[in-house]
Simulated assay, not measured.
Amino acid sequence: MSSGGEGFTPPGPKDFNLPPIGPDKTFEFLGQTMYLGVTKPMLQLALSVIIIVAFFWMATRRTAMVPSKMQYVGEAAYGMVRNSLARDNIGPEFMKFVPFLVSLFFFILVNNYFGLIPFIQLPTVSRFGVPVALALIAWLVYNAVGIQKHGFLGYLKHQTVPAGVKGPVLALLIPLEFFSNILVRPVTLALRLFANLFAGHILLLLFALGGEYLIMEMGGMYIGAGLLSFLMFMLISVLEMLVMFLQAYVFVLLTSMYIAGAIADEH
């Protein structure tokens, strides 16, 4: 945010391009300044793993027939992913995919909620490389299990040739099915997760920094507008809590559906 004489500079993509922690080493790539070293998002990714492992360790270290509050929360969280995402979508073979889906869901969820934690306040998946990596992992998993079950050529046929369709129309449908089922899915997975968290964080920055500017720099009759801006910041934060959960849920829901489609007997 600039000074009062220069006016308010709204937040933008540059606010997500954080320098590394420690020595500032940079290089130019395709006209962009790239950083070398450990960055804040990298530390958040590592921290999220520690948080998830610690949570489930505390929830399961002393299991009992009458669960403690921590055990109950852990079992409920695990059961939600196991039952509503894995079992209900994949079917009889769901158990082999539960560890992957549980890990994926809570990894995304924790990194989403980093955007609302004071002194962190950055959803890790608002950096495009993170959702791209997650989408590629999901893509590799559901394609790998599909190839394992049907064979490479059998899986290509399974994904590109609609059941019961014959004749010249296949010349049109096969490229469309290949494009849709093989190429587009990881792109839409990554973009959906990134765009929602990126846009939400931009909104939070806008109302927080805008409110600060109106109160601290403009003052006078603008104080009321600044307070309203802070109120909008708090309301959007509550909305973002729901969005962050839903985006983790939808990402894993779609992944489980793609796995189910890959191992299904019919397309």
Rank of each mutant, 00 (worst) to 15 (best):
M1K: 05
P10F: 07
F16M: 05
N17T: 10
L18D: 00
K25H: 13
T26Q: 14
E28F: 06
T33R: 10
T39S: 15
P41E: 09
M42Y: 08
L43E: 02
S48Q: 00
F56I: 09
R61F: 08
T63Q: 12
M70T: 11
V73R: 05
Y78D: 07
V81N: 00
S84V: 13
A86S: 11
I90L: 10
I90R: 08
G91N: 12
P92Y: 08
F97N: 05
V98Y: 11
L101P: 04
V102D: 04
V102Y: 02
F105V: 04
L109W: 11
F114W: 10
G115S: 00
L116V: 02
Q121I: 03
S126M: 05
A133N: 06
W139E: 06
N143F: 10
V145P: 09
L156K: 08
K157T: 11
Q159A: 13
T160V: 08
P162V: 04
L173Y: 09
N181D: 09
I182Q: 06
V184E: 11
L189G: 02
L205M: 15
L206W: 13
G211F: 06
Y213T: 07
L214G: 02
I215P: 03
G224E: 12
L227Q: 15
I236N: 04
E240I: 05
M241V: 10
L242F: 12
V243E: 04
M244W: 06
L253Y: 14
S256L: 07
A260P: 04
A262R: 09
A264I: 05
A264F: 03
D265F: 11
E266A: 14
H267N: 15
